[in-house]
Design a protein around this nucleic acid. Structure first.
Lengths: 222, 222
DNA sequence: AAACATTTGTCCGTATGTATA
DNA sequence: ATATACATACGGACAAATGTT
């Protein structure tokens, strides 16, 4: 097993990073509910670290819109409502359409193979009614396109929006939503459009592949 | 002068916020050059605060892509090169096009009046060769549309990308760039398209109003 | 109206990690 | 290879601000 020489050690994950990841997970899966008050001292004790890394993690989460900090008053998980669904998906659809457009010029055979492979697994997960697996594979499919686009500004914002969407799904549905059949065909259409260099179809399908689930999710909620 | 009742105090600006704003300004205007090493202790002394708010400010700037922190090694202003111009503008154009699309349903007469007013001032600033004024008014014009769109996810990312573009302009040109005449006409076309509810023209012109300056800036650089 | 309780903000000392001699 | 210098990460105490009794 060849190990890269510059394997700059696993970059010892810091207390702040662990705290950040854990708090984000808890907010996404609903362990920390929207509107819930966060006491940095309590969190520090619960996580076995001091207040400093907790505070730093909370500030990062504030920038991302997961928490609201009120100077001298309190810190709370941000509230969400049904309408947030209609606010989060459109920018994601727009940026993924852009990513698709950019990827047309940089995508290589290896990327294409990954797309086909992931979509095959995705189709199987849908057939076998494994909603969590399907959701993960759906995200992986889109991440291949984002990777191919080679634009860090686009990539970082897309991943942030995906985290918000995860929270919306978990909080509103309490469980992974079963993904519609249509996605499989849409993914295939996207793959074919990449093969043909058809920019218009790539962007249109990528948009649709996000906006259709948005409407479905929105219509399910009370 | 009517003062809102819930005027939650001037929100006493914290040391962290001051530090954050100041460091960001310095990175944008080139006082802190790309690649420059940042010592939190030195910065703390220079700004008259302790290391904590400096560290916190640096972490926020890291998330935004203005600095890179290497655990136990150093913290530096991120490098930029010519190609970054081609990476920053497209997502901004895509999101502004989306903002325009969303704003079509929410824009009101007051917004329209502000657009006309700002563009008139913008035209004057261009005529009188005041590039800095013109740049500010150009940003204000676009911010009206973003405000009207009422989507915080879109708004926050657009403002971040605008900061990056400012840095690119300053660092590469050493001075505000004189904005092309075309922008005035494009702004008028955007205003007219809003009046007619012409979604296609709104999105197309907003895209063009960013991508044209991108190409100009890119072609000017070495 | 003033003192109190609570929570966040800041300071600074120390520990830990990284690179160099 | 080990030690040393330096920068960042963390911890705990103190200060400031806010809302309440």
């Amino acid at each position: 097993m060849p190990i890269p020489k510059n394997f700059h050690s696993p970059a010892q994950v810091t207390a702040r990073d662990r705290t950040y990841s854990q708090l984000q997970r808890w907010m996404i899966d609903g362990t920390l509910q929207p509107g819930e008050k966060l006491n940095d001292g309590e969190l520090a004790e619960a996580l076995g670290v001091s207040r400093t890394p907790v505070r730093e993690a909370l500030q990062l989460l504030e920038v991302q819109g997961f928490v609201e900090m009120h100077r001298g008053r309190d810190t709370r998980v941000t509230l969400i409502d049904k309408e947030d669904i209609l606010k989060v998906y459109p920018p994601l659809a727009a940026l993924e359409a852009l990513a698709g457009e950019l990827a047309l010029g940089t995508i290589d055979p290896e990327h294409m193979e990954r797309l086909r492979c992931i979509n095959a697994d995705f189709a199987q997960a849908v057939r076998e009614h494994q909603p969590f697996q399907a959701m993960e594979l759906d995200e992986q499919f889109h991440n291949v396109i984002v990777d191919a686009a080679e634009n860090p500004y686009v990539a970082s914002y897309i991943s942030m929006l995906q985290m918000h969407i995860r929270r919306l799904k978990y909080v509103f549905l309490k469980q992974p939503v079963s993904i519609a059949q249509e996605s499989i065909a849409e993914h295939n259409a996207i793959i074919a459009a990449f093969e043909h260099g058809d920019a218009d179809t790539v962007t249109r399908m990528l948009r649709q592949n996000w906006l259709r689930p948005m409407k479905e999710l929105y219509s399910i909620i009370v």
